[in-house]
């Protein structure tokens, strides 16, 4: 999964940023970079809440979820002999 951030700004000036696809440690740095970049543009932010996503979600985002079932091959490719039709 690509590294991404989705920021929602509601009608009351509340901002919620969701970071996805970042490995351990890098996500907090990215959030701080965003806060600094916003500060340079005149937005002084105060963190109201910060929470990590559940481990299963993070593993899935990073493509580390080994428990996920492998995608089966299409039937045509599994046919014995490799012949068509």
């Amino acid at each position: 999964m690509a590294r991404s951030v989705e920021v929602r700004v509601d009608g009351r000036g509340r901002v919620r940023a969701e970071f996805s696809g970042f490995p351990e440690g890098e996500c907090g740095e990215e959030a701080e970079s965003l806060e600094r970049a916003l500060g340079a543009l005149g937005v002084r932010v105060r963190v109201r809440a910060r929470r990590l996503k559940p481990p299963g979600v993070i593993r899935a985002e990073l493509g580390l979820d080994s428990e996920a079932p492998a995608r089966p091959e299409p039937a045509a490719l599994r046919r014995p002999g490799g012949g068509r039709g």
Binding site: G13, R14, V15, R16, A17, E18, F19, S20, G21, F22, P23, E24, G25, C27, G28, A31, E35, L38, V43, R44, V45, R46, V47, R48, A49, R50, R51, L52, K53, V57, I58, E61
Partner: peptide
Amino acid sequence: MSQITSYSAE
């Protein structure tokens, strides 16, 4: 890790 942060802003 991936995270969600809520801010108030001025």
